[in-house]
Design a protein around this nucleic acid. Structure first.
Lengths: 154, 154
DNA sequence: TGATATTGCTCAGTATGCTGACTATCAGTA
DNA sequence: TACTGATAGTCAGCATACTGAGCAATATCA
């Protein structure tokens, strides 16, 4: 435990640091200006029409206070619309715009490329194993962060 | 690739998110107010007397612009001293204080505990394998981020 | 129904992390 | 030595993430 490299927490930070750098580089090369967080939100909004912000946050494990700013920026870029819910006047319904759909479609190859680059030091089998172990560790720790992953409410 | 759980980048973010939450919770329970970043900096400053900021950044893979604020806060807490270097008037030499040493010693059990909790969903063998795969992927991607890990200069 | 608790969202404040720009200094070389 | 390039550090600006507080609206239950 002397070395940082023996600390899973340090390795987590480094891996995430590289993941973000690779994502941004690939997406920028494809001519887009989207962060990993914005991409995940946009994809999830597209897959779940009329989603409210809290449910969105749960689906991708963001803090609800973080989501506000992320949506602000997606709205400002014209990729998402935010409107009051008719059923619950506290809630906002989110909808992807046509431009949002186009951006999502066009940027997807860059996102996939980023995932490949992130695992480029590993064999296919090792990459699978890494993902399996991460999923398992994350599942066990899900409720330890303020922003746990949550299912769609019934 | 439909699911976020198939994206290593997403898993990286979640794992790091949980790692930080666990770290802060354990450290706070031990009665300290130190972030993961501050802890790593403090431990590295202790291990390398008269370190300058750029070398410190390289040893723990921080951006040099991030280090400035981290050191500011460590200095403000009285855990580190920052003084001008005599050899190079551009550089600042960093030194841990007595209080910094005490804090580091007392907080170490909490840090170790956090690492165990982070891997609590995995067997010992799986934990080792996860760390091995992370190290391998990180090594292959080291130069893809603006703040790569660097060795001590000779 | 009326009091209470909960929920959806926002905001202020703090701490990473990054880009890009700038100053001061140092190092190498013509 | 004067010029050029590289280096150490800081700063402004932007985007996550979090804590804690607050407001408005809804849900629950005595």
């Amino acid at each position: 435990m002397k070395d940082n490299n023996d600390m899973p927490g340090h390795l987590a930070r480094r891996f995430q640091q590289i993941a973000v750098a690779v994502f941004l580089a690939e997406v920028e090369e494809a001519g887009f200006d989207l962060t990993p967080v914005q991409y995940a939100a946009l994809a999830t909004i597209k897959a779940n029409p009329s989603l409210d912000q809290v449910t969105l946050a749960g689906l991708i494990a963001y803090d609800r206070t973080t989501i506000t700013g992320v949506i602000d920026r997606l709205v400002q870029k014209g990729l998402v619309e935010r409107r009051a819910s008719s059923r619950d006047r506290r809630a906002r319904e989110l909808e992807i715009t046509g431009e949002g759909r186009r951006a999502l479609r066009k940027v997807t190859p860059a996102v996939k490329s980023a995932q490949r680059i992130l695992l480029r030091g590993l064999s296919a089998k090792e990459g699978e194993e890494l993902m399996r172990l991460l999923r398992k560790a994350i599942a066990a720790g899900n409720d330890l962060s303020r922003a746990p992953l949550r299912d769609m409410p019934a």
